[in-house]
């Protein structure tokens, strides 16, 4: 059984008459990079705030490190957070600020300063280490906000919309950095950018109306393990009966709206390349105008299907 880094257990949080979290119960596997996906107001930010101890739940609890709710004193530095819409102190200097946060979470002064320098280099802001925060651009401030999450050796990092506001080059660098962190620590990323989630995460939680509607490994949810999708030129309609063969045990489905032919197979019996080896020649022989082949559904399609059923 996979160990959980964070477990929301029946968490309810109300703000006045609005229920932000409605008995949220879900686990984040330790060592995973987990995407938290949901529409605006679904409860993602509140879920983070409750986990980090900044917001008190009305009911339930969030267990971190498999033991108890997060305690900012006893667990200082073990769980870090990039909160949404939270500015850094305007008059501080990045190096001083990072060293202060490092010292606050228990690093000695020298190590805290060294960590600050390391992280400023990582986010390419060494040259602005002594500039007041108020003089930095939005993107630069965002990079410092991300940097503070990786001070010391946090075991759990909660990132709320980490890549928004960054330029494309920094997005690519940050993506590489996050992927590199896999299995070293647990990272939970809340984002509306499903493409980024798909590229970075190995686990995903769909949350709507304060509840987890589905969660699991991204491979399972998108069908990457047992689904191949063939993108064809729109207007062409394949003859499924001609493509199927009783020996294959392949389950073919055609989606005229997207122009995609999906092929589900038993991953334990057949490898994806074997499915391709069998199906592709038939498709090409039938004159199918093939554009691309990919493994599984897009996360966006999966999310839209779930969000649609959740809304209805």
């Amino acid at each position: 059984m996979t160990k959980s880094a964070i477990s929301w257990r029946g968490v309810v949080k109300r703000f006045g008459g609005m229920t932000a979290l409605d008995r949220l119960s879900v686990d984040v596997p330790a060592g995973s990079i987990c995407g938290l996906v949901g529409s605006n107001g679904a409860g993602k930010t509140t879920a983070f705030s409750v986990a980090a101890g900044l917001t008190r739940p009305d009911e339930g609890e969030v267990i971190v490190f498999g033991r108890r709710p997060f305690d900012p004193v006893a667990d200082a530095g073990r769980l870090t957070l990039l909160p949404q819409d939270s500015e850094l102190p305007r008059d501080s200097r990045p190096r001083d600020l990072l060293a202060f946060y490092g010292a606050l979470q228990g690093l000695d002064r020298r190590t805290a300063v060294r960590e600050a320098d390391r992280l400023l280099e990582l986010v390419h802001l060494s040259d602005r280490a002594h500039s007041p925060v108020r003089t930095l651009s939005h993107g630069m401030r965002k990079r410092i906000m991300i940097a503070q999450c990786f001070l010391g050796a946090p075991e759990v990092v909660l990132l709320d919309e980490p890549l928004s506001g960054l330029d494309p080059r920094e997005v690519a660098r940050m993506r590489e950095f996050l992927i590199d962190q896999r299995r070293r620590r647990t990272i939970v990323i809340s984002s509306h950018n499903l493409h980024e989630i798909e590229l970075v995460c190995d686990h995903v939680i769909f949350i709507e109306h304060g509840r987890a509607v589905q969660s699991g490994p991204i491979e399972t949810l998108t069908g990457r393990r047992d689904l191949l999708v063939y993108e064809l030129v729109s207007g062409y309609e394949p003859d499924l009966a001609a493509l199927a063969s009783p020996d294959d045990a392949l389950e073919l489905a055609w989606n005229p709206a997207t122009g995609e032919l999906s092929c589900r197979f038993d991953a334990d019996q057949t490898a994806p390349d074997e499915v391709n080896r069998r199906l592709l020649p038939r498709l090409l022989a039938a004159g199918a105008p093939l554009l691309a082949v990919r493994r599984g559904d897009r996360l966006e399609e999966r999310y839209l299907t779930l969000a649609g059923s959740s809304a209805s």
Partner: peptide, 19 residues
Amino acid sequence: EEVAAGSARYALIRTSRAS
């Protein structure tokens, strides 16, 4: 100011509200 801007959160996940 710090609570409004959210900057208090960076410190308050590392220390107690009392300190």
